[in-house]
Lab assay of single mutants.
Amino acid sequence: NKASVVANQLIPINTALTLIMMKAEVVTPMGIPAEEIPKLVGMQVNRAVPLGTTLMPDMVKNYE
C-alpha cells in the first residue's frame, strides 16, 4: 500500500503548506501520494483541513 499525505495539524484556509504540516500515512481512500510532499510545499489549501485529514487533490490550489 502506498502512503498518502495527511494533515499533521489543523491547516487554516489559504495557508501555504510547509513540511511540518504534513505526514505520510497509509489511508483509505488514498489521497495525494506521499512522494508529492516536496511539490506541495508552498502551495495553498483552498479550505480548512482538520488534523488527521487526508489531503485530496481538490483541497490544494493549482495542484495537478
Rank of each mutant, 00 (worst) to 15 (best):
M30V: 07
P29I: 06
Q9V: 08
K2E: 15
M22W: 01
T15Q: 05
Q9A: 08
N14M: 12
E25R: 14
L19R: 05
M59K: 02
G42L: 10
M43E: 02
V26S: 15
V27D: 03
T18S: 07
G42P: 01
N1W: 14
M22A: 02
V26P: 07
M30A: 04
T18D: 02
P12D: 07
L19A: 05
G31K: 01
V45M: 12
M56A: 08
V27F: 06
M22L: 10
M22E: 00
N14H: 12
I20H: 10
T54I: 04
I32H: 01
A34M: 10
P57T: 11
A16T: 06
N8A: 10
L17D: 00
A48Y: 07
M59T: 08
R47D: 10
M30Y: 13
I13E: 12
K23N: 03
M22Y: 01
I20A: 04
P12Q: 11
T54S: 08
P12H: 08
Q44H: 10
I13R: 10
L51H: 06
V41L: 10
G52S: 07
M21V: 04
I13A: 11
T28K: 03
A16C: 12
E35S: 09
P29V: 08
P38S: 12
M59L: 05
G31Q: 03
A7G: 12
P12L: 13
K39S: 05
G31L: 01
I32N: 00
P38M: 03
M56V: 08
T54V: 08
L17K: 00
Q44L: 13
K39A: 07
A3L: 12
E64I: 14
L51M: 11
T54L: 05
K23A: 04
N14D: 08
P33D: 09
M43V: 08
K23M: 08
I20P: 05
R47Y: 11
G31E: 02
T53S: 14
A24I: 09
P50Q: 13
E64H: 13
N8Y: 15
A16Q: 05
V45Y: 00
T53M: 15
M22P: 00
V6E: 02
N1S: 13
R47A: 06
M30F: 14
R47W: 07
T15N: 06
A7D: 00
I13H: 05
P29R: 03
P50A: 07
E25M: 12
T15L: 06
S4W: 02
K61T: 11
M43W: 15
P29K: 13
P57F: 14
A24P: 05
E64R: 11
I37V: 04
M22I: 08
M30G: 04
L19V: 03
A24E: 09
A34Y: 13
T53F: 14
T53H: 11
V45F: 02
M43A: 07
P50N: 09
E36P: 00
I20M: 13
I20K: 11
P57D: 08
L17C: 02
K61L: 09
P12S: 08
G52V: 01
M22V: 10
N8P: 03
T54C: 12
K61H: 07
L17N: 00
V27C: 09
V5T: 06
D58P: 07
L19S: 04
V6D: 00
V6T: 09
E25C: 13
A16S: 08
P38I: 08
M21N: 04
P50V: 05
T18I: 03
L17E: 00
I32M: 04
A7S: 04
M21E: 02
M43H: 08
G52M: 07
L17R: 00
V60H: 00
K2T: 15
A34S: 13
A24D: 07
L40N: 00
S4Q: 03
M21H: 04
N46F: 14
P57Y: 14
K61C: 13
A7I: 05
I13S: 09
I37Y: 02
E35A: 04
M56N: 10
L17Y: 00
P38R: 08
Y63N: 03
T54E: 02
Y63G: 03
L40E: 00
Q9T: 11
A3D: 14
A7L: 03
G31Y: 02
V26W: 07
V26H: 10
V5Y: 01
T28E: 15
N62W: 04
K39I: 07
V6S: 04
V41K: 08
G31C: 07
M22G: 01
I37M: 11
P50Y: 15
I32Y: 03
N14L: 08
V45Q: 00
P57N: 06
M56K: 10
V45S: 05
P33E: 08
T54K: 04
V5P: 02
M30E: 14
Q9N: 05
P33A: 09
M21T: 06
G52P: 01
P12F: 09
V49W: 02
Y63M: 03
E64K: 15
P29H: 12
T54Q: 04
T28D: 14
A7N: 02
I32C: 04
A34I: 07
T15A: 05
Y63A: 02
I37W: 02
Q44C: 12
T53C: 09
V45H: 00
K23L: 07
E25S: 12
Y63L: 04
N1M: 14
L40D: 00
V6L: 14
P57W: 15
N8H: 13
I32G: 00
D58N: 10
N46I: 07
A3T: 12
L51Y: 13
D58F: 15
A24V: 07
P33Q: 04
T53G: 11
N8W: 15
E36T: 08
E36L: 07
G52N: 13
A24R: 09
L40T: 02
V60M: 06
A24W: 13
K39W: 08
K39T: 03
P57H: 13
V60R: 01
K23C: 06
I32K: 01
V5R: 00
A34F: 15
A34Q: 06
T53K: 14
L40I: 04
S4I: 02
P29A: 05
L10R: 11
A24L: 05
P12K: 06
E35P: 10
V45T: 08
L10F: 09
Q44R: 13
Q44N: 06
N62A: 14
A7W: 00
I11T: 01
N8L: 14
T28W: 04
E36G: 12
L17T: 01
A3C: 14
V27A: 12
L55D: 00
K23F: 03
A16K: 05
N46V: 11
V5K: 00
G42K: 10
P50I: 10
L55C: 02
P33I: 10
A48P: 04
K61G: 11
P57V: 10
N8S: 09
P29Q: 13
V6Q: 13
V26F: 08
L10S: 06
M30C: 14
N46W: 15
S4H: 02
K2D: 15
